[in-house]
């Protein structure tokens, strides 16, 4: 267990270094190297999550430690798939160090294997958890992409080429990538919410119980729905889309963590430590 985490951290560390070299030296080989370290590191992270899941008999999202690991794994997987498809090196430069920090934080928060509660073993619940995490990972990457858009737009508008001007792709490309992240994230989020409702119906006999997390998640979903609707029907793109994407993710983060720390509800143990 300890050794697996150590290896994961080591590989993510190497990936971070390779990506940093890519950022400064602008050599594609470093980015490729970083990508491979990330893939291998994520295999180890996957092994850790799998091991914890096998120990406790369910997906390890019953405390902050496990939640961070699963969230990290999902972000890594989503990035690996997207990077393979669209080559967004600069995103890796910023994402991998965050991933590294997430795994470190997870190792610092106490790990207490939980005795199995049967409520965690439904198909609906597993789908709910996985899709929600995938959706949130996509939206996190959409938020990072939005920041890139704002940086690049600022450089072009103010006519001051900064450090990033040549390192970032074109505005249109960043905007479009952000859109793809949001569409994917929104779709996953929607499936996650639906499976959550079905599960709630099966366990508690009602789809909706005004649990604070449910309320906030519903709000987040509506915001992203509005963002996508605006884009398709009124051409909300560029700066406006970027700002909304960042706002959406801020609310999402609150839904993810804030609700648990500040309010009570049946998602409570999710961030317990």
């Amino acid at each position: 267990m300890k050794i697996l985490i150590f290896i994961t951290l080591f590989l993510y560390g190497l990936s971070t270094i390779a990506y940093a070299c890519h950022l400064f030296g602008r050599n594609q080989r470093f980015a490729d190297l970083g990508y491979w370290f990330l893939i291998i590191g994520s295999l180890f992270l996957g092994a850790i999550v799998f091991q914890e899941a096998a120990q406790s008999g369910h997906i390890p999202v019953h405390n902050l430690h496990g939640t961070l690991l699963v969230a990290g794994l999902m972000i890594a997987l989503v990035f690996i798939v997207f990077q393979y498809r669209i080559k967004f090196n600069i995103l890796g430069v910023f994402m991998v160090p965050i991933l590294f920090l997430m795994v470190i934080t997870a190792t610092l928060t106490p790990y207490t294997p939980l005795h199995t509660k049967n409520i965690f073993n439904s198909f609906w619940l597993i789908t709910h958890i996985i899709t929600i995490f995938i959706g949130e990972a996509c939206l996190a990457l959409a938020c990072a992409t939005a920041f890139f858009y704002l940086i690049q737009e600022h450089a072009i508008k103010t006519k001051t080429k900064g450090f990033f001007f040549n390192r970032l792709p074109s505005l249109e490309w960043i905007d479009h990538s952000g859109y793809i992240f949001i569409i994917t994230g929104f779709t996953a989020l929607t499936i996650g919410l639906i499976t959550g409702f079905i599960y709630a119906e099966l366990i508690w006999g009602r789809f909706w119980s005004w649990d604070p997390k449910e309320v906030w998640a519903g709000g987040t979903w509506l915001l992203y729905a509005a963002l996508l609707h605006g884009r398709i029907s009124a051409g909300w793109r560029g700066r406006k889309a970027a700002l909304l994407s960042i706002a959406g993710f801020a609310i999402l983060l609150f839904t993810f963590f804030g609700v648990n720390f500040l309010m009570k509800g049946h998602h409570g143990e999710f961030t317990a430590f």
Partner: peptide, 8 residues
């Protein structure tokens, strides 16, 4: 060059 940073 600028055009290419605005349009893909």
């Amino acid at each position: 060059e600028l055009g290419k940073k605005i349009f893909d």
